[in-house]
């Protein structure tokens, strides 16, 4: 066989592999959407789940997912911002910095089930927070911190040093320069990073089953006092999320329409992740434009 023929065959094989992968991936997305989208209705999105009969919705789970996401970002963003700033602006190039980076990398590579189990030991048991929104939000924070820190650090590193010099030359401290000049300039990529991490948090389940819990008690959506246990805002109530719900009804098998509900819920999850993705790109581009012109 000559080289030309081998080249032709190899190219063909590569085309086939790529096509097969595309088929698998598209089939995956298609399956979820085809199975799930017909299940989605206003009723499905807003009514509470039913355990032993068909026709339940995912209202509370959906609310819980968003609430937990919001809290997790609220806690993890300032911490990651601080850590990212320190790593990129202050830390020198030495062994200690290297060790710190390694430690953060280890945290980001921990299986999320381990993070969840730690959350169970630490927040649920040790701090007696029980299966609650707070425990869940903290576990998600642990899960999110390394990813967000890294993306913020990268965003800051991409801002040219001449912006920093401009600040120093005006007699501004490094902290003022970073927080008021470099961070705003890096905002487009920071926001992209935050929204992408939001997509990951939104679909996370393993870190939550033993922290936020696997039950979704009824909520009184007219009571917004966070100190009442039936209030949607109550931080100490257990809060099964959408992703945990899908896992649970499939493992338990007591819900008669578990398949339909999971399909619908999966479609909602996927659509949410898609939206987060588009939002991240769109916001990043939009902000960047806003900063650079007009």
């Amino acid at each position: 066989m000559n080289a030309k023929r081998v080249d032709k065959i190899a190219t063909g094989v590569l085309y086939a592999i790529a096509a097969l992968v595309v088929i698998i991936l598209v089939a995956l997305l298609g399956y979820i959407l085809v199975q799930g989208v017909p299940e989605i209705s206003w009723h499905f999105l807003t009514s509470p789940a039913l355990s032993f009969e068909a026709g339940g919705g995912i209202g509370i789970q959906l609310f819980n997912s968003f609430y937990l996401l919001f809290l997790a970002l609220l806690i993890s963003l300032p911490i990651s911002l601080g850590a990212g700033i320190y790593l990129n602006e202050y830390a020198g190039q030495n062994t200690i910095t290297g060790l710190i980076r390694t430690t953060i990398e280890i945290l980001s590579s921990l299986p999320s089930v381990v993070v969840g189990l730690f959350g169970y030991l630490f927040f649920v048991v040790q701090f007696k927070l029980g299966f609650s929104i707070l425990s869940g939000a903290f576990a998600l924070t642990v899960f999110n911190l390394p990813i967000l820190t890294r993306s913020i650090e990268e965003a800051l590193a991409n801002i040219s040093d001449n912006q920093r010099e401009a600040g120093y030359a005006l007699g501004l401290s490094r902290w003022e320069t970073v927080t008021k000049i470099v961070v705003p300039a890096a905002l487009p990529s920071i926001i992209t990073g935050v929204v992408l991490s939001a997509g990951r948090i939104f679909g996370e389940a393993a870190a939550l089953i033993y922290t936020a819990g696997q039950s979704a008690p009824a909520l009184n959506f007219s009571d917004w006092n966070p100190f009442n246990i039936s209030s949607p805002l109550s931080p100490l109530r257990p809060a099964e999320t959408l992703a945990v719900h899908i896992w649970k009804i499939n493992s338990e098998g007591i819900m008669p329409d578990a398949k339909a509900v999971s399909a619908g819920a999966s479609a909602v999850l996927i659509i949410a992740v898609l939206l987060f993705n588009f939002l991240a790109r769109w916001l990043g581009k939009r902000l960047y434009k806003h900063l650079t012109a007009e």
């Binding site: 001449n162 912006q163 010099e165 401009a166 600040g167 030359a169 000049i181 300039a185």
Partner: peptide, 10 residues
Amino acid sequence: MVFQRPNPFA
């Protein structure tokens, strides 16, 4: 100080 490359803030 003023630098070689113009570096206005964003």
